[in-house]
Amino acid sequence: MIFENLKIDIDHIPTLEQEDFESLREDYLYMRISSRILFLLFASGIGALFSLFAKLYFGYWLFPILGAVLLVIIYEPLAFKVKGYLLREHDVSYKTGLLFFRQTTVPFNRIQHCEYNQGLLGRLFDIASVKVFTAGGNTSDLSVRGLSKESAIKLRDHITKLSSAHE
């Protein structure tokens, strides 16, 4: 054990297990795929305009975009499996990233304020996110994405209540 010299027994420290994480709503996966495909549609629109007016060979834009669509459809479900959030008695965690994994935990007694967010697409898919802010600039924020509107509001109220108890 690494902490054998320390004043408390390492066995008594709560551990954060990967299996404990709650996975996000499946609708969030569909929302991400559609938002990326919408972007690619927009890009192909520009490409089509170019081939119409500037006589550009359509393959120059069509094939890369089809490739990107394929990539999105393969990558997003795999990345979705990694994402998850975890609410514990004293902190909130979020994990994401297939190639570059990131797992962040913010204890409630360090939270300054928290925010509820829902975008345009989010309204269609009933997906909202909760942003958690700590002191000292925006490098240290955490956002829990891919929740339903109802649970996002619940989560925000819960975090606000617990974090203000520490002030």
Partner: peptide
């Protein structure tokens, strides 16, 4: 004094 902690792992690190 810590406020939050982040664990990062890239594919190479994994």
């Amino acid at each position: 004094k810590l406020q939050n902690i982040c664990l990062k792992q890239s594919v190479f690190q994994k």
